[in-house]
Amino acid sequence: MQDELRIENLGLHLPTGQCLVQGLSFSIKAGQVLALMGPSGSGKSSILSWLTGTADARLHARGDIWLGSQQINNLPTEKRRLGLMLQQDYLFPHMSVGDNLHFGLRGGTRQSRNQRVSQSLIDAGLAGMEHRDPATLSGGQRARVSLIRTLLSDPCALLLDEPFSGLDTALREQIRRFTWTAAQNLPVLLVTHDLADVPAEAEIVTIGEPCSELDLTEPQVQ
């Protein structure tokens, strides 16, 4: 059973001092989906990149991230164990589908690793596609590969940033179902502007309220 993901007192300001969010706190239990909604430019994606530790260094950010009893905001990105899915799937073009999946695996014998990759492809309805070039996959297949690649890296929580918006309408529903099934044991943070993406039972947090500008005492900014 996975731990809960907890964000405490998050404040985010652009390099110019403009406020994105202030005093934002929430927690997500395993198997629960929290949808972060708001108009574009309200800082939804910045929150996700801050969570994974890949945000622009010039962003002013404070707040704490907890995974269960462990505070992770001082860990490097690769140790935070937060799975991330973006609108762009970032399937590595120089690797086959199988290599892409292997890339995220942690530990295990060669045999068990091969086993996990094959099994996950079968589960995703992509059996036998291990040696395919990602460039030859359809949009829906890519989305599924991207998701199972994330899951194979054993994340403790899942962060989704508009993961469905690149897909055509027919596929969307299919991938949504696939995602919620696959992620049912993890805390999931979903960023979207489309209410249809949000599962019925999910909690919704809206951001984009005006907040006070950062008092920029550092002389180098402005």
């Binding site: 530790g53 890339f103 995220g104 890296s153």
Partner: peptide, 25 residues
């Protein structure tokens, strides 16, 4: 930079990202 981030989020450290992702790309 998204390529590097995607690999980091999957658990790859700096050198692995450099060697397996950035340089091949």
């Amino acid at each position: 930079p998204g390529w590097g981030h995607a690999a980091q989020v999957l658990g790859a450290g700096y050198w692995r990202v450099l060697w397996k992702i950035r340089l091949p790309l």
